[in-house]
């Protein structure tokens, strides 16, 4: 009886995986096609990879994407961590919940509304200031910081709540100034949360299309925007080659971060276990 249900669940999970990965497999398969067709495989070739890697438009878009992702991640991580720190220590409950509900708006709203709302304001303010380029790199940067912030805050906030309050107090008792205690005791304690938030902000910025689409300037093209304009034109395996490269890079990054992450997690699990043991001994 138990074995039977095991077979069913395995089969079901395999079917889901096929559904999730079949399109990727098709894409990767046809990226090695020598011809232009996306239905008939002619001959194995790396021709389209050569085309992508030599394409200055693609490389430029990649550079822009990275610039935008790095700057928006830096700003949102800094501001978000500080915000989580402040929110975590807020005394007035209504203020806390008000700040949190506003923070969550970009997460709850559909991207298209976040994009349109920012665009309307940028266009309005730009017109008032008489700017010729109302939308630019800067408007995109503001948009990316805005939609990344809630993710940073939500990653850091639980770490601040988990933090043992006696730690900074001990640091103060032992002669640290508040600033020293913040950087030497509190920051290391919440660092895993900051990292998670930063990674999330970075990947979301890399991946975003909808909000970028509405707040983009005419001269600043990112990779998702380029892919969008490419898919508007005729289909070529160039896009598949590009997609495959992105996919492989992400895969490698994931494996690396997973390997280091699992190490980190193992350590944390150990600590948690030890703490539990101590607690039990204390209560006994």
């Amino acid at each position: 009886m138990k074995k039977k249900s095991g077979i069913i669940s395995n089969l079901y999970i395999i079917l889901i995986m096929i559904f999730l990965f079949a399109p990727m497999a098709v894409l990767i398969f046809f990226s090695f096609n020598s011809g232009k067709s996306t239905a008939v495989f002619e001959e194995f070739s790396l021709y389209w990879y050569g085309v992508v890697l030599k394409d200055s438009e693609t490389l430029n878009a990649l550079k822009n994407t990275l610039i935008l992702a790095v700057t928006s991640t830096a700003i949102s991580t800094l501001m978000g961590t500080a915000a989580a720190y402040g929110i975590g220590r807020m005394k007035k409950r209504y203020l806390k919940s008000a700040v949190m509900s506003v923070t969550n708006i970009p997460m709850m709203n559909p991207d298209i509304i976040t994009g349109i709302s920012l665009m309307l304001m940028f266009v309005f303010v730009g017109t008032m200031l008489g700017l010729s380029d109302k939308l630019s790199f800067w408007t995109m940067l503001i948009a990316h910081v805005t939609f990344s912030l809630p993710y940073v805050i939500l990653s850091v906030l639980p770490k601040i709540k988990q933090m043992d309050n006696s730690l900074p107090e001990a640091a103060l008792d032992l002669g640290c100034t508040p600033v020293q205690s913040f950087f030497k005791v509190e920051i290391p304690e919440i660092f895993p949360g900051i990292m998670t938030g930063a990674i999330m902000a970075f990947t979301m910025s890399l991946d975003d299309f909808v909000i970028s689409y509405f707040t983009k300037g005419s001269s600043f093209q990112t990779l998702p925007l380029l892919i969008y304009s490419m898919t508007k034109k005729r289909v070529t395996p160039k896009i598949y080659a590009l997609a495959t490269i992105i996919f492989v890079v992400i895969l490698i990054l994931l494996i690396i971060s997973n390997l280091s992450g699992s190490k980190d997690e193992r350590l944390r699990a150990k600590i948690a276990k030890r703490k539990k043991k101590e607690d039990r001994e204390n209560t006994d």
């Binding site: 894409l27 991946d207 992105i246 992400i250």
Partner: peptide, 14 residues
């Protein structure tokens, strides 16, 4: 982790 434009596009191909 794959951009949703590409995911959607893959289905168009299929």
């Amino acid at each position: 982790w794959m951009n949703f434009l590409i995911r959607t596009y893959a289905w168009m191909v299929i």
